[in-house]
């Protein structure tokens, strides 16, 4: 696995992520990994201190990580939010919209396809925390 694909200016965080259980036990870690069944809200008391949350996608069909990402961003998390695992190019745009800003796909992505996929939809219908203006906002100023 190469370096994560990152959309952050400060680059990818290097400390390895620990499991949620060990994170909650030993409180000095700054990087944590969330499995699909784990509750992102368990991290809310520690957001200030976290530099990396790695959200696992063991199978691309399991969409729980999208909710986890939004919950963290909506609660003010500004550190790196990384999607790791079965992360495919056709899911990237939605992941970006949910707040992911780095990606560690198991299989490398074709950078050209990544670029077209991310630029495909000019305006979104929904408001999310990613800051892009939803279409209804553009319609009504």
């Amino acid at each position: 696995m190469g370096d994560p694909l990152t959309f952050r200016t400060d680059g990818a965080h290097e400390e390895p992520a620990v499991t949620l259980d060990s994170f909650l036990d030993q409180s000095n870690a700054t990087a944590v990994r969330l499995e699909p069944g784990e509750d992102a809200r368990a991290l809310l008391p520690y957001l200030d201190r976290l530099a990396l949350v790695e959200v696992a996608f063991p199978a691309f069909r399991d969409g729980r990580g999208y909710s986890a990402a939004r919950i963290l961003r909506e609660s003010g998390y500004t550190g790196e939010l990384r999607a790791q695992g079965d992360v495919l190019v056709d899911q990237l745009a939605y992941m970006r919209r949910c707040g992911f800003d780095s990606f560690a796909p198991e299989k490398p992505l074709d950078p050209a396809v990544v670029k077209t996929s991310l630029e495909r939809y000019e305006h979104p219908y929904q408001a999310t925390i990613d800051g892009r203006a939803p279409i209804w906002k553009l319609r009504h100023g």
Partner: peptide, 14 residues
């Protein structure tokens, strides 16, 4: 229809 089209969080529901 508009809200649900290309919904980023709800495209890989159970």
């Amino acid at each position: 229809r508009q809200w649900s089209s290309f919904h980023p969080e709800f495209s890989y529901l159970p």
